[in-house]
Amino acid sequence: MGGAASQLPKEMVSEYQELTFLTKQEILLAHKRFSELQDRDSLSSRVPMEKILTMPELKSNPFRRRICHVFSTSEPNDGSLTFEDFLDLLSAFSDSATLEIKSHYAFRIFDFDDDGTLDAGDLEKLVNCLTGDTDETRLNPEEMRQLIKNILEESDIDKDGTVNLSEFQHVISRSPDFVSSFKIVL
């Protein structure tokens, strides 16, 4: 790590600076952290999801697997990340990313079945992720039903039983804590 061979070329750094919301130091730090996870020393090699999940920044995050799946470009999607995927991830979670981009990725992270809308099943998984998925921390079925009903009442503007992206972004735009909390600091 950090040796002369693994340094990012200067043009690459400035290109990444243009394409992401990251600053130069953040990109260099990301590269250093990423090359610690890599076996081979090449930018295009993928790091499997299990290895990414060992990073302390993600270790205690209940959505860590979803995050990897959303940002992974591998085919078929196994959650492994290239360095550029990793930069995309950090860019979306950076301080200066716009609300729009953050809410877009949040929507995709919360959309557990990847079908483009948040339905009752997604919401249930989301709530279980938040409260912890063990028997004593889970809400009981009655409470869960009530909670999902309340959420849909609040956010489902066109009353079709699911929350779509624009409804989600509408709700998020009125939630003051979202921008400050949807952030990962390396």
Binding site: K59, P62, L126, T131, N150, S175, F178, S181, K183
Partner: peptide
């Protein structure tokens, strides 16, 4: 909007401390 705020913007992605994450949950 209180329920939506708690569920959609409830998790603090900044948290890296295992203990703090448990507390947050």
């Amino acid at each position: 909007q209180s329920f939506c705020n708690k569920v959609f913007a409830g998790w603090d992605f900044c948290i890296t401390n295992e203990n703090a994450a448990r507390l947050k949950r």
